[in-house]
């Protein structure tokens, strides 16, 4: 019981996820800054930002829905934390696992997005309203390719569990090469999921100030920011578990490998962020439906055929 609780709350659970999230945020900002010829923040900057926000006054707009306004950041963070339980960090042993947990993780992943939408909606501000409508519209664009790209490898592995897939592919590493298109689709739509440039339309600073979070401040904003950071860890871990499952069997080495893999994913995401301008909503939807989704569909067909051959 105690060991399970430690696993969920401390390592490799919530505490580790938050700490690693702050580190990844630092890495992301540093790489982004270096790519722009800036020197970037010191390593403790994300933590300092978080602590500072915690100490700030929380202001709730008079015509916002009080209860929803307070509860949404917590729902968002807890959904991400729950999903992280099913993702392997230390070798083959995530904190919990069962057949079909991939589906659960994907469902839990939509909760932060939906709570962001609701947060904007209940703020009752024009900027927040437009931002939350964009959040939802954007979700319909990237969700389909993201899900298809993550489910395609599962077809070959013939299991619906993240751990099972990681295990299968580490035993049959050559199958991996088949999934390379899906890997890139997952990375790009993952960027959309994380609402980072070029898909940062919901919070487009120069258009709608900060989108759904425009009315948030203090602790509530800090929790939302933390949940965004944790989502980054979750996406990076999920993609590296599904598409980069190199494993040695030695827990320490595997943990090291996990760090390297997630950082590699993050570097790609940071590169994507720094090399592109923000897309417009129509361009984003066109891109997702005309390019990403067809690639994911073809990937699924190929994988189905291969599964039949096997």
């Amino acid at each position: 019981m105690l060991s399970a609780l430690t696993k969920i709350l401390v390592f490799p659970g919530f505490l580790f996820m938050s700490a690693y999230g702050l580190f990844l945020e630092y890495l992301d900002r540093k790489v982004y800054a270096r790519l722009q010829h800036r020197s970037g923040p010191p390593w403790y900057q994300p933590l300092a930002d978080f602590l500072k926000l915690l100490g700030k006054e929380t202001i709730i707009p008079a015509n916002a829905n009080q209860r929803m306004f307070r509860i949404l950041p917590v729902i968002s963070l807890s959904a991400v934390a729950t999903a992280f339980i099913y993702v392997p960090v230390l070798a083959k042993a995530p904190s919990a696992s069962f057949e079909g947990d991939l589906i659960i993780v994907l469902y839990l992943l939509t909760i932060p997005t939906v709570s962001l939408f609701l947060a904007g909606w209940y703020s009752r501000s024009v900027y927040a309203t437009i931002g939350s409508v964009r959040t939802l519209t954007q979700m319909f664009a990237y969700e389909v390719p993201l899900f298809m790209a993550l489910l395609a490898p599962a077809l070959i592995a013939q299991t619906w569990s993240v751990t099972g897939m990681a295990e299968f592919y580490s035993q049959n590493p050559l199958y991996h090469l088949l999934n390379i298109p899906a890997f890139f689709v997952a990375l790009i739509s993952g960027q959309g999921k994380l609402e980072r440039a070029p898909f940062d339309l919901p919070e487009a600073e120069t258009e709608i100030v900060a989108g759904p979070l425009v009315e948030y401040s203090g602790k509530l904003l800090a929790i939302f920011k933390m949940s965004a950071v944790c989502e980054l860890v979750l996406i990076a871990s999920l993609i590296s578990a599904v598409f980069l499952p190199l494993m040695t069997g030695n827990p320490l080495l595997d943990f090291l490998l996990y760090l390297i893999k997630t950082m590699a994913v993050l570097l790609f995401l940071a590169l994507l962020r720094s090399a592109m301008a923000r897309l417009r909503m129509d361009q984003m939807i066109k891109f997702c439906w005309r390019i990403l989704t067809p690639i994911a569909v073809v990937q699924i067909i190929i994988n189905l055929v291969i599964r039949g051959v096997l």
Binding site: L35, Q36, H37, R38, A197, P198, D200, A204, E205, T206, S274, A275, M276, A277, R278
Partner: peptide
Amino acid sequence: AGHEIGFDTLFMYSWR
């Protein structure tokens, strides 16, 4: 202009 369209890298480069 770069900043307005969310292309901060261009912003930093040209201001440098």
